[in-house]
Computed example of a mutant assay.
Amino acid sequence: MRSGEELPLTILRDVLRGRIEGDLDTLEVAQFPGGFSNLTYLLRMGGREYVLRRAPLGPVARGAHDMAREYHLLEKIHPVLPVAPEPLLLVEDPGLLGSPFYLMERRRGVVVRTTIPPEYRDLPDAPRQMSEAVADTLAALHAVDIDAAGLRAIGKPEGFNARQVGGWAGRWRRARELLKDSGDLPPPAELRDELVIAWLEEQTPPESAHTLVHNDLKLDNLMLDPTDPAHVVALLDWEMTTVGDPLVDLGLTLTYWTMPEQPGRGVNEVGASFPGFLNREQFIARYASQSGRHVTGDSVRWYEVLGHFKLAVIVIQIFARYRAGQTSDPRFAPLAGQAEWLIREAWRRISAEATGDAGEVRPADE
């Protein structure tokens, strides 16, 4: 359990008593170590297990980390996309644990972060199977009938791409303003972040389609069967899900897939640059095949630049909270450098567009 992120067990027992099954007198709580945003805990009681999610500590952006929205989303998504866990209980009173929270079913599996886990090291085809699991899950998500599932109303799909650029640009500028005297980011003229924003604005395409958009679909948000890396047990972290252009999802997934490092972690040994995994072009081809969409490396360039920019915004917002002392999690200390790398990589892809080599991955220190 990270310091300062403990749950008040007496209050939690009182809140849950009579509302869920299990012996609350035996309640034990452990914190899941991954994730930089919402806090996630495992609750054990009398042979039963649940997962609890709540917002991070400290001030949060308006409309962000909305536990009630995430809970009600899963109520609609779980029946039509079984990899989405089933939500079980929503508690909206923020005075109990410091924010609203919800419980969902606990699923068991392997979460692959930056290395191939021991369960798969003797399976020579595991890298390809994991690669295809990511691409296939993305395609399955985008195949959900948003009208039949009652999901269209969760977002405003018309004009989605333009609002993405405007919204993320505003968040970037606000975070930069908070850090303006810290020296953690180079000036805009050097970093070229405003040039990235201007390019995204000028090149914004119309939506390719309107589908469910997870907005953070990556390998370590999948839970895989310990004996079969091709079988997805769960898709996690639904907090940013909306309805919009499916290629926005693909662009962010490719951003993660081609990164030499994962935010807040060390060298990444899974993904496009490593033996056995699908490379960028193969990943795009697999998604195109499974989704039935006409997608090429050139047609997703804008979406990849947006993906790099969005991830830069996410990590710099987290770093700003760390710099302000709202969290002491040491994993957040290097995030300013990673946000800078992401912006530079976005600009490199823009600059390399005419040469056709923008899919190349460069080390984070170049």
Rank of each mutant, 00 (worst) to 15 (best):
1 M>I: 11
2 R>V: 05
7 L>Q: 03
11 I>D: 12
13 R>V: 12
15 V>C: 07
17 R>C: 08
18 G>T: 14
19 R>Q: 15
22 G>L: 00
24 L>K: 06
31 Q>W: 00
34 G>R: 09
35 G>R: 02
36 F>A: 00
36 F>Q: 02
38 N>L: 06
39 L>V: 13
41 Y>P: 02
42 L>V: 05
49 E>G: 07
56 P>Q: 04
66 D>Q: 13
71 Y>W: 08
72 H>G: 02
74 L>W: 03
77 I>N: 00
79 P>G: 08
82 P>R: 12
82 P>L: 12
85 P>L: 11
87 P>G: 13
87 P>K: 10
89 L>D: 08
101 F>G: 00
105 E>F: 03
106 R>C: 09
107 R>N: 02
112 V>T: 09
116 I>M: 15
118 P>C: 04
127 P>H: 08
129 Q>D: 04
134 V>T: 09
138 L>P: 09
140 A>S: 13
145 D>T: 06
147 D>W: 00
149 A>R: 08
153 A>D: 14
156 K>R: 04
160 F>V: 12
163 R>W: 01
168 W>P: 03
169 A>Y: 01
169 A>N: 02
171 R>I: 02
174 R>V: 10
179 L>T: 07
181 D>H: 06
186 P>E: 15
191 L>N: 15
192 R>Q: 15
194 E>C: 09
198 A>N: 13
200 L>C: 05
201 E>G: 14
202 E>Q: 09
204 T>A: 13
206 P>G: 07
208 S>D: 07
220 D>F: 09
222 L>N: 08
223 M>N: 00
224 L>V: 05
231 H>I: 06
233 V>H: 05
234 A>I: 10
238 W>D: 02
238 W>R: 11
239 E>M: 02
241 T>I: 09
249 D>H: 10
249 D>F: 01
251 G>C: 03
251 G>S: 08
252 L>Y: 01
257 W>H: 04
262 Q>S: 14
264 G>S: 06
266 G>M: 10
268 N>I: 02
268 N>R: 04
268 N>Q: 14
270 V>M: 08
271 G>R: 04
274 F>E: 07
274 F>G: 00
277 F>I: 04
279 N>T: 11
285 A>P: 01
286 R>A: 11
288 A>W: 12
288 A>R: 09
288 A>S: 15
291 S>N: 11
295 V>T: 11
295 V>G: 13
298 D>P: 05
300 V>S: 03
301 R>Y: 08
308 H>R: 11
310 K>H: 13
315 V>T: 07
316 I>Y: 08
321 R>K: 15
322 Y>T: 04
322 Y>D: 00
323 R>P: 00
325 G>R: 04
326 Q>N: 12
332 F>N: 13
332 F>T: 14
332 F>G: 04
336 A>W: 10
339 A>I: 10
340 E>I: 15
340 E>F: 01
344 R>K: 09
346 A>T: 02
347 W>Y: 10
354 A>F: 07
361 V>N: 06
362 R>E: 14
362 R>L: 13
